[in-house]
Computed example of a mutant assay.
Amino acid sequence: MDKHEKLIDLISEFDHAMLVTRSASGTLGSRPMAVAQMEDDGDLWFVTDRNSGKVADLMLDDDVAVTMQGSNKFVSLSGKAHAVDDQAKIDELWNEAWKVWFPEGKSSPSLVLLRVEPTRGEYWDNSGASGLKYLVKAGKAYLQGERPEKDASINASVSM
């Protein structure tokens, strides 16, 4: 599995992410988001309120970061995001649990999709056999007063 495939595979394991945007004042803001869908190329879809601060942020600066974390797996993406008004896509993605935020359902006028198109991604996967292999390397390096070598199977940067 190449680095790009590994990154896509890791992204697909996450149901939630932190979406980071830049406000008009230049500050960064992050908020948890449920992942509505991940496409095969790594594009992510989220559902939000069109009157939210994140949508206002995106109108000024569409550069975003998306981070995901599990017990021993981490992903960081950077790219572009934009609001999408597409009722057919909303119908396709609709999850009844979202009625908590959109009581009118999928036809709610405040509901809008966010599409994040990553241009770059990084991952750290310290799970399974590769994680154990890294722990052995790290322990050995610690005992020798050195830093462990970077292992491409555990950590990689990928252009999307």
Results as ranks from 00 to 15, higher is better:
residue 77 L to G: 04
residue 79 G to V: 09
residue 79 G to Y: 02
residue 80 K to W: 09
residue 82 H to D: 11
residue 84 V to L: 11
residue 86 D to Y: 09
residue 86 D to N: 13
residue 87 Q to H: 10
residue 87 Q to P: 05
residue 88 A to E: 05
residue 88 A to G: 08
residue 89 K to P: 04
residue 90 I to L: 00
residue 90 I to M: 01
residue 90 I to W: 03
residue 91 D to T: 11
residue 91 D to V: 11
residue 92 E to P: 02
residue 94 W to H: 02
residue 96 E to I: 14
residue 96 E to S: 12
residue 96 E to W: 00
residue 96 E to Y: 04
residue 97 A to P: 03
residue 98 W to K: 01
residue 98 W to P: 09
residue 98 W to L: 02
residue 100 V to Q: 04
residue 100 V to F: 03
residue 101 W to A: 12
residue 101 W to R: 09
residue 101 W to Y: 10
residue 101 W to T: 08
residue 103 P to D: 03
residue 103 P to Y: 01
residue 103 P to H: 04
residue 104 E to L: 12
residue 105 G to P: 09
residue 106 K to P: 10
residue 107 S to K: 12
residue 107 S to I: 15
residue 107 S to Y: 08
residue 108 S to W: 01
residue 108 S to G: 11
residue 108 S to L: 09
residue 112 V to E: 04
residue 113 L to R: 08
residue 115 R to Y: 08
residue 115 R to L: 13
residue 115 R to A: 09
residue 116 V to K: 02
residue 116 V to D: 02
residue 119 T to G: 11
residue 119 T to N: 11
residue 121 G to R: 00
residue 122 E to S: 07
residue 122 E to Y: 03
residue 125 D to T: 09
residue 125 D to M: 07
residue 125 D to F: 00
residue 126 N to L: 12
residue 126 N to P: 00
residue 127 S to G: 14
residue 127 S to Q: 01
residue 129 A to C: 06
residue 129 A to M: 10
residue 130 S to I: 13
residue 130 S to M: 06
residue 131 G to K: 02
residue 131 G to A: 12
residue 132 L to E: 14
residue 134 Y to P: 00
residue 135 L to W: 10
residue 136 V to T: 13
residue 136 V to P: 00
residue 139 G to K: 06
residue 140 K to S: 14
residue 141 A to M: 07
residue 142 Y to L: 15
residue 142 Y to N: 10
residue 143 L to D: 00
residue 145 G to K: 10
residue 145 G to R: 09
residue 145 G to S: 09
residue 145 G to Q: 11
residue 146 E to Q: 15
residue 147 R to W: 12
residue 149 E to K: 15
